[in-house]
């Protein structure tokens, strides 16, 4: 069990910029009572095609968009069945062509509780049923209404449930989540948008569509090595807009299907290295991005 707990560090990639991927709030490995870990990771994500609605589009006045992020990620076991997770990324995003300036700064801070509600023994295997609740808010008032932006700027609540099956070193985790996104206030009065929402004389507040998220992840976890592959589908739940002239970016309905993999290697003592790769199969109002990341993890 100990090694599993140690490996709970591997989830790092949440709440990224509007064109960056989110690999899901968390995995199914609990931290353990009074155990803690801290991860510092770097990621680089690029795309030269993005989806307007679901139609792929290449903009010669944008070129390739590259987003780099440094993410701090901490987990602390409040109890044997309850973890506190905190994360905060610093992001830089820029385009290779056109005249959009680079955007850079702290994005959103997230705090989440993960609760292992059930733990069944099935022979030598175990099945855990977990719930999690997270809250996200922008660290600063960054510009969110632009194709290059640090994030959507909304305050979110993320609720999800997970089934985590483990037998020997093999594991498989399925999870389903709902992300509720609060409204945001733009810098400008919206001139054209959904008529049910907007007063074209004064409306600066817009809705950000909620999303649902399903992730399946499977792999092998041993004391020194962890490897997984995963698939993620994010689906807009509420009505949203497509990227278009004058349309506020935060109102876009964002969805995607991504696949990826993770490798974790324990070096010495409490020090480990983490690598990840993911790519976008298809999407909606998001970049068709490919992402690489690596990081150092210290802790139990």
């Amino acid at each position: 069990m100990q090694q599993l707990i140690r490996l709970s560090l591997i989830l790092i990639y949440l709440f990224l910029p509007r064109f960056a991927s989110a690999q899901g709030l968390m995995n199914g490995f609990m931290k353990g009572d009074r155990k803690a870990s801290l991860a510092v990771t770097y990621s680089q994500e690029t795309f030269d095609t993005y989806y307007r609605g679901t139609t792929p589009f290449r903009d010669p006045n944008l070129g390739t968009v590259t987003t780099q992020a440094i993410n701090l990620y901490g987990v602390y076991g409040l109890g044997y069945d309850l973890d506190l997770i905190v994360t905060a990324p610093y992001i830089r995003t820029e385009a290779s062509a056109g005249y959009q300036p680079r955007q850079e700064g702290f994005q959103d801070v997230t705090a989440a509780l993960r609760w292992e509600a059930f733990d069944y023994k099935l022979g030598k295997a175990r099945l855990a049923w977990l719930f999690a609740l997270g809250y996200t808010m922008p660290i600063q008032n960054y510009v969110n209404d632009n194709i290059l932006a640090l994030g959507q700027g909304s305050k979110n609540i993320d609720g999800r449930t997970m089934l985590h099956f483990k037998s020997g070193s093999f594991f498989v985790t399925g999870q389903f989540g709902y992300i509720r996104r609060g409204p945001v206030t733009l810098d400008r009065i919206v001139n054209v948008y959904d008529p049910s929402q907007v007063n074209p004389n004064s409306g600066m507040k817009v809705n950000v569509p909620d999303v649902t998220e399903a992730i399946i992840r499977t792999g092998f976890a041993t004391k020194r090595v962890y490897v997984d592959v995963w698939g993620q589908q994010q689906t807009p739940y509420a009505v949203g807009t497509d990227i278009g002239p004058g349309i506020p970016f935060p109102t876009n309905a964002i969805g995607f299907r991504r696949v990826g993999g993770t490798l974790f290697l324990r070096l010495v003592g409490r020090l480990g290295l983490n690598f990840g790769y993911s790519t976008t199969l298809d999407g909606q109002n998001i970049g068709k991005s490919t992402r690489l990341n690596g990081g150092i993890i210290i802790g139990n």
Binding site: W115, F131, L133, Y135, K155, N156, I157, G159, R180, R181, G182, P183, Q197, V198, N199, N201, S202, G203, K205, V206, N207, A238
Partner: peptide, 24 residues
Amino acid sequence: NLLILTGVVVGVTGCSKTIDESQP
């Protein structure tokens, strides 16, 4: 607990997505 969570979600982000603005 799930009921409480639901209450928190609704309480923090508001249960309706309607945006009220004054109309002429």
